[in-house]
Each structure stands twice: as C-alpha cells, then as structure tokens.
C-alpha cells in the first residue's frame, strides 16, 4: 500500500477524530507534502460535518418508550444471580447493592417476590 492509499484510508477517521496520536501524526506528515491527499481531506471535512448534522436529525426514542422500558425492567426483577427451581416455581435472587447494603436476597414464589433478608454493613437484617 502506498503512502497515499494509506492516507486516503485514514482520512475519514482523522476527520472523525478517532485516530490514535501516532496515526494522526503519521497522516499529518504525509498531508504536509501531498497535494492530492490534502484535496481529499478538503472533500472529507464538509462531508463529515454534513453527516454529523444529518444524523443528529434522525429521531431519538419516543417519549413514551421510557415508561415501557422502565416497566419492563421492573418486571424483569433486579439484576443479579438467580438460583432455584423454575419447575417448583421457587427461586432465590441475590444481588449486591451499592447503597450501604452489600447483600440482599429475596425469595420468589411463583413469580412473586418475597423479601428474605438484607445483610447490612455490620450485621444481618431479616425481614
């Protein structure tokens, strides 16, 4: 691959701002001495600006989706490790909490969450 081919390959990433410092330096040195590659850079800059502006107009998530996702997350239960028997409809979930309760657990009986225990810093609290 020639220097110009490599430069043309790197220019989009250079314009997007995601090249490593080393690659940016390598490209800048080439651009300093190569008119065709500077012209390629000059074509790429407005295209990149157009793309960023245009992609920003693609609609974001609809407002009502927030509630749907939040409710689905709640229904799916707390993140953590579930163990137990689905056949019996029993499972015990344990998860770490970052708010002073290093460990908490619950028992699920046929999908209903029953608080079981909460291990707090310095002791165990049973519900």
């Amino acid at each position: 691959m020639t220097d110009c081919e490599r430069a043309e390959e790197l220019i989009p990433w250079y314009v997007a701002g995601s090249l490593s410092d080393e690659e940016s330096g390598e490209l800048a040195m080439h651009l300093a001495t190569c008119d065709p590659c500077r012209a390629e850079l000059a074509r790429m800059v407005p295209l990149a600006m157009d793309l960023q502006a245009a992609l920003g107009t693609v609609p974001g998530a609809p407002t009502e989706l927030r509630e749907t996702v939040t409710e689905s997350a709640k229904r799916s239960g707390a993140p953590g490790i579930d163990v137990g028997s689905f056949l019996l409809g029993l499972s015990m979930g344990m998860s770490a909490s970052g708010r002073g309760d290093p460990l908490q657990g619950d028992l699920r009986i046929l999908g209903r969450k029953v608080p079981l225990f909460r291990l707090q810093q310095g002791g165990t609290e049973r519900d």
Partner: peptide
C-alpha cells in the same frame, strides 16, 4: 453501570437518558 448491576433504578434512568436517543438513531439508521 456498576450501580445498575447493583439494582439501582436511578442509575438505570440516568443510563436511559444518556443512551436511548442514540440507540434509536443508530437502529433507525
């Protein structure tokens, strides 16, 4: 993410705010 892993719903809301629109744009594209 660490707070979400611990079941922190407020952290999940924060994450939703940061990513929902971006993921939607990506998926729509």
């Amino acid at each position: 993410l660490a707070r979400i892993a611990a079941g922190d719903e407020a952290a999940f809301h924060q994450f939703y705010n940061a990513y929902a629109d971006r993921i939607h744009r990506f998926a729509l594209t």
